[in-house]
Design a protein around this nucleic acid. Structure first.
Length: 392
DNA sequence: TCTGGGGTCCTAGGACCC
DNA sequence: TCTGGGGTCCTAGGACCC
């Protein structure tokens, strides 16, 4: 039995590290993976970070901070396949793996001690396996709870291990800035600082009721647990496709802001088709359609509508999104982004469509399935609505 | 011509029901 | 001539994560 059974494993600068496998000539130069135009940094190697370049920084600012930075385009197919291999390596160590994203996961190694040794030994072993198999480095935090393991792996970066035994919990956690806690972002950090809570220790030694009065009941309780490392110590292991996602959506920033209804409605069709297609591959349907609109000043609003019945039909989602858009009554407002999301997803098999007499939707659902079949055979570019075909 | 795209969860008010 | 209280659904917004 071990008192620190949880590992948080996090790839170092994942997208950048994977991209650099193909370009070893660039490893000593500042490199970011990111979009072009209005994009942001998805990952920056550690050379680039010395210039202050970070994830989520706009590319325009990156070029100002580091004019000779090398920008590589993301290759999601490769990222996904490397991620799958890494997750397989995790499962060689323990079946109790909770993936958080492509590049990080929690592992419960409680049952692996007899076979593989202490958590630290297991962490070392994992790091060398991933390095040998994938040519990338990772960092590992080891602790008794999820959030402490997470904080520890961040402190271990890059290419390191930090183990936090229970006896060292407070000396590790309490000197840290509150912003280091998992779930405390910029806004909450600023709020806590205004109240005079600068370190995790400050939060830990504040009565729960005082904390809750400042930040709300839920967040207050959560912060209290985070500050004492008493958040959850069990993982939630998703077993394959059993549990559907809760929502699916797509949004897109225009290359240039637009106030042209036709352009917006056509983009909503593209996004609706993308979302509906993903819903059909996942065999889910949803009832609530949400439209997202971001204006040129970056203010963002959402409007949603819940349908009588769950759908996965492109035309229905698009029609709902378009109604929501028209109901905004925008005149000459310039839009930066539009998005479509469907929430309240349930397995399609549980949706019993009541076919009304002469109902036209049936035809659209069949058209969607024909599109899906053609897409599987000929690729996504082969079939699309007429209004999305460029006349050139 | 600063600020992506994919998600999750929480809050809060109003409607509606019992 | 008063005005509870709990539960659920819907909507809108916001914080946070990678």
């Amino acid at each position: 039995m071990t008192d620190t059974p949880l590992l948080h494993v996090d790839m170092d600068a994942f997208y950048a590290s994977v991209a650099l496998r193909e370009r070893p000539d660039l490893v000593d130069q500042p490199v970011v993976v990111g979009g072009s135009g209005r994009g942001v940094v998805l990952a920056a190697n550690y050379v680039a970070r010395r210039y202050g370049v970070r994830s989520a920084l706009p590319m325009t600012r990156v070029r100002r901070l580091c004019p000779h930075v090398v920008v590589l385009a993301p290759d999601y197919a490769t990222f996904t396949s490397v991620s799958a291999s890494v997750m397989e390596t995790f499962r060689e160590v323990t079946p109790l793996v909770e993936a958080l994203s492509l590049d990080e996961a929690f592992l419960d190694v409680r049952g692996s001690a007899r076979r593989l040794g202490s958590p630290r030994q297991i962490a070392e072993r994992l790091r060398s396996m991933i390095h040998d198999e994938q040519g990338i480095t990772c960092s590992v935090g080891v602790a008794a709870s999820v959030s402490v393991a997470k904080v520890a792996s961040r402190r271990a970066k890059p290419d390191g291990i930090v183990v936090v035994p229970p006896a060292e919990l407070t000396s590790f956690l309490h000197p840290l800035d509150v912003g280091e806690l998992y779930g405390v972002g910029e806004k909450t950090r600023a709020l806590l600082h205004r109240f005079g809570f600068l370190t995790v220790g400050d939060v830990a030694h504040t009565p729960l009721a005082t904390l809750q009065a400042a930040v709300g009941a839920h967040l207050g309780r959560q912060l209290h647990h985070l500050a004492w490392g008493t958040d959850r110590g069990e993982l939630t292991v998703r077993s394959g496709t059993y549990e559907p996602e809760r929502s699916m959506g797509a949004d897109e920033t225009f290359a240039r802001d637009t106030d042209d209804r036709e352009v917006v409605v056509r983009e909503l069709l593209r996004l609706s088709a993308r979302v509906a297609g993903r819903m059909r591959s996942a065999r889910v349907a949803g009832r609530t359609v949400t439209l997202k609109v971001r204006f040129s000043d970056f203010t963002t609003i959402t409007r949603s509508r819940t349908l009588a019945e769950a759908t996965d039909v492109t035309v229905e989602i698009h029609r709902t999104a378009t109604h929501l858009y028209d109901a905004l009554g925008l005149q000459r407002a310039r839009l930066r982004l539009v998005g479509v999301r469907v929430e309240g997803l349930v397995p399609r098999a549980t949706v019993h469509h009541q076919l009304a007499l002469g109902e036209p939707e049936r035809g659209w659902a069949e058209a969607d399935r024909a599109v899906d079949r053609a897409t599987r055979r000929f690729g996504a570019a082969a079939v699309r609505p007429a209004s999305l075909v460029r006349r050139d």
